[in-house]
């Protein structure tokens, strides 16, 4: 979980200050709380936690390691001067104003769609997690 937060530091080094702050807010304020609550709600009393035994450890590690080696050699061999934007200057200063302008002009539809998707997903998540038989019980009592 710490590594998910440290990604924000990498964003700062890449000159993406707005994205770093958004990342910290979403991951600490949202996803960390969600994961903590779901770990708390799915704990069993009889045996402490089911994550002690793992499966096919060496096979999985070798698959992941071979994929990393493949990507590493690809990255080292790639000729970066063929990129279209290679000679353009790097970002200097803050990007917040530009991101705001672009979200309100060029990427407006994607921005609105992202908002709708997020709203539908949160409504669906709360509907899925509701225990419907207990809701019926409460309704009968009322």
């Amino acid at each position: 979980m710490v590594s998910l937060i440290c990604v924000a530091g990498v964003y700062v080094f890449a000159g993406a200050d707005f994205l770093a702050i958004a990342h910290i807010m979403i991951y600490i304020g949202g996803i960390l709380v969600l994961i903590l609550f779901s770990i708390m709600l799915t704990r069993r009393n009889e045996n402490p936690y089911p994550s002690s035994k793992n499966r096919a450890v060496w096979l999985s590690i070798s698959v992941a390691l071979s994929m990393f080696i493949l990507l590493f050699t690809l990255i080292l061999k790639f000729n970066y001067t063929t990129l279209a934007n290679y000679s353009k200057p790097f970002i200097t200063g803050s990007t917040i104003q530009l991101i705001g302008q672009l979200l309100m002009t060029k990427h407006l539809i994607a921005f609105e769609l992202a908002g709708i998707v997020l709203m539908v997903a949160l409504m669906g998540a709360s509907w899925i997690a509701t225990q419907h038989n207990e809701v019926e019980k409460i309704k009968k009592h009322a």
Partner: peptide, 25 residues
């Protein structure tokens, strides 16, 4: 970083962040 006037990568990363939050919930 090489795309200082359009920032398409950062905007796509922002949308990926939104979808990741929805997926996690």
């Amino acid at each position: 970083r090489n795309d200082a006037d359009q920032l398409q990568g950062q905007l796509l990363a922002l949308f990926v962040l939104v979808i990741a939050a929805a997926e996690a919930s």
